[in-house]
Design a protein around this nucleic acid. Structure first.
Lengths: 215, 215, 215, 215
DNA sequence: CATGAATGAGTGTTCATTCAT
DNA sequence: AATGAATGAACACTCATTCAT
């Protein structure tokens, strides 16, 4: 293609993404204030000045890292729900699996920790993240739970609480991985952790197997 | 008393705690690098130089904030378990209640968020926190769960996973409260949140009431 | 040339020397602790930050000033001795003349005063200066005196004492020039001072003109 | 006496001298700017605040150290010359011996180095030192040399140069002792150094013993 | 008199940002 | 487009000086 024929051109177009990837890693590791733009540039293989060709300021870079990272991926989650025809438990499994593939197993998994750390310094960005990521992520899970309850697969649990209970360990996993886990190691294998948590939680949500006997 | 007769002296003894309290708030709000020592001093009602009478450096202040904050309180948790003679569910309620009184409802609740944010910059401190706080906190909960399982009150769940599932929402609560919660507000009342989460989780752990005999 | 075509580049290469020259003057005038790096930078025509592009710290700048200043010049002194074919008195005159041209009449003449003032604060540097400058300077003079004694031009004086007696007034000259001389003025013209001192001292060292009559 | 009967009183009167002695040592070792008043106070066995009961400021302390140290001693030198009835060589020996006892072998020997180091920062003090110590010290030596020349003991050397040549090694001795000598050790025993220097110099000044035969 | 807690101006150092090349 | 030398505002930290006790 055009791109392959002009490697320098391709490079130029890849630059912002390379810089954002480098910045994400360092922001997650050291925090916003603790990250030096020179280190970001070096890790991305360019000079300090080049960074300013693509981002107006350190803050603009930070916002881009947050905004461009996760939002596009969330769109796909909605598609999964709409397309699903199997059981709701399977749907939930698919959602979590997809999240794992696209975020959890990626450096993007550091974004929650980063946003938690810097919310105080970037309130507007925090609000954006809340509306664009958290609210919509919860929406996905709410629709899923309501689908399960409506179909009788799940008990009539309090949905909002259930969302918390489902998300909390997943979030703790990625937060841990990018904070104390880097010093103290991971206690569990992430896949096992997610699996056993999912089983346990689902056990509390699923409707009893023998509808005729249940309460 | 002696103390009241020497206000200067009394002040001198209170200064470190006052400074640590001010520092905790700012470290939680802005992160370590983003916090100016002058602001810490001002919030504690002293000048910048005074801070250095009590702490050798910004880093020493940070470490003191982490170390002196939570460890002493954990000691008391162990006492609760040893002294408890009621049901294990009540013990668990007591532990969480005590935590809420001494930490959760205090500025100390910001420490987990702080430690998460700064683990990358202070690895040794992170290890200390892990060993002195996290491991010991999990110990308390492990003993509680084992007590419940041994007495037949709880099902024979996987204990480590159960610890995660119990702690995760509690941690998420305080993390949220000191990060996005400061911009976006708290979705739930904390007490309700803790209560409903506890009920839900306990429901997944409690042994089924021996049908026919139950209650 | 290449250099003229890239003034920025040429500047970059000249910067360390410019900064060291500015620093030497101020260190000599005000001492190490009394010198502000901002003043050094201003005198060198750059901003404070630029200084740190070339020197890691105030201390590193100080060490560079001492180390790069005099050592290279001493090398040339040894060459003079080896190459000399005239009388030893002429050689001694040549050595002192060379010293005057390259050091004594330069701002480098302030280095001895500087090293004297700061030896207590930089012991390792003082030892380096001792070994690299003082010992080697004395070596040059020792070889010269021994040459004169061997050839019968000089009396068989105690060489070490003679070195002291020859160096002391020269050192006092440069020390004075960069200390009290800046307030109280120079009592003598330096050239006259060196000349008359040299004559007097040489008079005490030269062998009597008529060997047959001596003693 | 009164003093012995009231040790606290005696202490109070001794305080300024104790503080000046402590300050002299530290000023000589670290320079004016490099000396912390807290260290001076600690070395004198008092608290930082006490120092201000006796000296208005760091600068006032410094000036007192310089002014009170050497001037009184110089007065006595003049008395020696007036009272002397022996040979001028003996007088010169006596002057140097007295200097050694009262200054050279004392911490006061650090004053020349100190004044050299700080002349640039305290020009008025340097002028005072010049007038009160240097000029008067040279006067003493000038009178001595003139006495020797007048009596025919010394040759008719250029007196000002001779003063330099006599003083320079003595000054170098004390300068060295309080600067590089503290790191690199003393090359010679001070007494031997002074003796051999004196012999050598005197040899160049003394009139030839047998006038009829000389030259 | 003596203390030492408190202050705040001053300085070394860092780093986001600019701009000539 | 890319560089990296230069800048200067900002901040950690020090220490001379003050003053309540």
């Amino acid at each position: 293609m055009e791109a392959l024929a002009h490697p320098r051109q391709r490079r130029k177009e890849a630059r912002p993404a390379e810089l954002m990837a480098a910045a994400l890693e360092l922001f997650v590791e050291k925090g916003f204030a603790g990250t030096r733009l020179e280190d970001v540039a070096t890790r991305a293989g360019v000079s300090k000045g080049t960074l300013y060709l693509y981002f107006d300021s350190k803050e603009a870079l930070f916002k881009a890292v947050i905004q461009e990272g996760i939002v596009p991926i969330l769109e796909e989650g909605a598609g999964l729900i709409d397309a699903c025809e199997g059981s709701t438990a399977d749907l939930m499994r698919a959602l979590i699996g997809e999240w794992w593939q696209r975020i959890g197993n990626t450096h993007l998994a550091g974004v929650p920790k980063l946003m938690i750390s810097e919310a105080g310094n970037f309130p507007e960005l925090a609000i954006y993240y809340h509306d664009a990521v958290i609210v919509r992520g919860r929406d996905l899970m709410r629709r899923t739970l309501q689908r399960g309850i409506a179909s009788g697969e799940f008990r009539a649990v309090d949905v909002e609480t259930a969302i918390d209970v489902i998300f909390a360990p997943v979030l703790m996993l990625v937060i841990w991985r990018y904070s104390l886990g880097m010093c103290c190691g991971m206690a569990h294998d992430p896949r096992d952790y997610l699996q056993s948590h999912f089983d346990l939680t689902l056990g509390g949500i699923l409707a009893p197997p023998h509808p005729g006997v249940a309460r």
